[in-house]
Structure formats: C-alpha cells, structure tokens
C-alpha cells in the first residue's frame, strides 16, 4: 500500500483567467506570466493538479516534458517507448499529485522519480534485449552516452567532482545504472565479471561517492 503524506493546501483559482504557476519570491502564491521569474514552480503546479486543474498538468508537460522525454529516451532508447513512458508518467503525476508533500522534498525530484521508476519497470519487465533493435545494442554507443552525460555535468557540481575521484570503470558502472538503467546483472554481463563481485565492487564505488558527497 503506498502511503504518502498529502498536501493540505490547495491552489485557489481566480475567476479572472488562467493562472500560470511560476515561481515568485513567495513560492506559495501563483502569479501571472510576466510578473515574476520564469522558473517553473513545480510544487504549485502539483498542488493545482491535485485540485483538478488540467492546465497545470499541461504547463508541467510544456516545462518539463522535453527533458523527461530525453531521460526516458536515453534509458529506453526508443522514441515510441520513451513517449509511452512519459505519457504514463504524466498520468501517474496527475493521479498521485495529492500525495506529494512539499514538506518532504523537491517537486521536480518527485516527478523525475515517477518517470525513472516507470522506465525501470518497463526495462525490467520487458527485458532490455526485447526492447532494442540490434543496432542499438552496441556497447560503444552506450559508452558514448555515458561519457556525454558525465561531461555535461557542471564542473562545479558536487556529483561531478566526486565521480572524478572514482576509477573510470567504477564511475561508468554507476553512471550506467542511473543513466541507462543497467541492473547489476547487465553491468556484470558487459564487464564479463561474476555478479557477486560486481555487486560488491559497485557498492564500494557508491560508498566512496557517498563519503565524498557528504
């Protein structure tokens, strides 16, 4: 049974026209387009979704859908599956919006967790090999995707700086699980190493990363 805290406040819509939920100095107050910062206020949008405002979900799609599609495409590697995963995630976001609690964390992270879980479930259920056309199975293209992801991390980003301290193959193993959704078994398969030792080895990498990040 999924148990999550609810948000107890809901956005009040004014009758004078559609409200765009954008971040302002006071993030709880929705503001009209042009009057405040153009950073999307994900938390307010989720609260509006919970109160049944479909335009809030559309705003969220416009603001975040392209990136979410990119994340899904990177993991699932097929445009049609990435679109399916994104669509299903938005339906879940709509249905679960009432369970999001701003006190407990970032709205954007909450949204991406739903997307990532959806992609991982698709990967695990279908089996990666079934999802892919043979051409996409090239390990070389996977490495390129991971290198790109790594190099796109801002040099000042803590994760980037800490990943840099790891041995390259540990770094790539951890990146392949987050970015490509590799399981322990897939990492072991690609490396040609026994599953048990790969698990222990990845855990040492995660530990080192955790110590560096904390």
């Amino acid at each position: 049974m999924t148990v999550a805290r609810s948000c107890e406040t809901s956005q009040h819509l004014t009758a004078s026209g559609p409200i765009t939920y954008l971040a302002s100095a006071d993030a709880d107050v929705p503001c009209r387009k042009g009057t405040c910062d153009t950073v999307t206020d994900h938390a307010s949008l989720l609260q509006a979704c919970a109160s049944g405002d479909r335009s809030a979900l559309k705003t969220l799609l416009d603001a975040e859908g392209g990136r979410m599609l990119g994340v899904a495409r990177r993991m699932l590697r097929r445009q049609d599956l990435a679109e399916d995963a994104t669509q299903e995630s938005f339906v879940l976001i709509w249905r679960r919006a009432g369970q999001y609690d701003p006190q407990r964390g970032s709205a954007r992270a909450w949204i991406y967790t739903i997307l990532r879980n959806r992609c991982l479930t698709l990967l695990r259920n279908a089996g990666r090999e079934e999802l892919l056309d043979p051409a996409a199975l090239e390990t070389a293209s996977d490495s390129a995707t991971l290198e790109t992801a790594y190099h796109r991390l801002d040099l000042t980003n803590d994760l980037r700086q800490c990943l840099e301290t790891l041995e390259p193959d540990k770094r790539m193993a951890i990146l392949s699980s987050y970015v490509l959704g590799y399981s322990h078994g897939e990492i072991a398969g690609r490396m040609g190493a026994p599953l048990g030792s790969v698990k222990a080895w990845v855990r040492r990498g995660l530990l080192k990363l955790r110590e560096c990040l904390s």
Binding site: L61, D62, R67, R73, R74, Y150, L153, N157, Y178, L213
Partner: peptide, 28 residues
Amino acid sequence: RLRYGALDDTADTLEIPATLWTRIAGAL
C-alpha cells in the same frame, strides 16, 4: 535523489510531439 538528480539534466531536451498532450488528456 537530489545528489544524483543533476544527471537527469544531462539528458537531451527533446521536442514534445504535438500528440503527447492529446494522449495524456485521453488517458485522464
């Protein structure tokens, strides 16, 4: 999650197909 979340932002931002909203709204 927040530590690793930076990696989500390294994905390409793809164009949202015009049909996606229709599909989502239909599913709702």
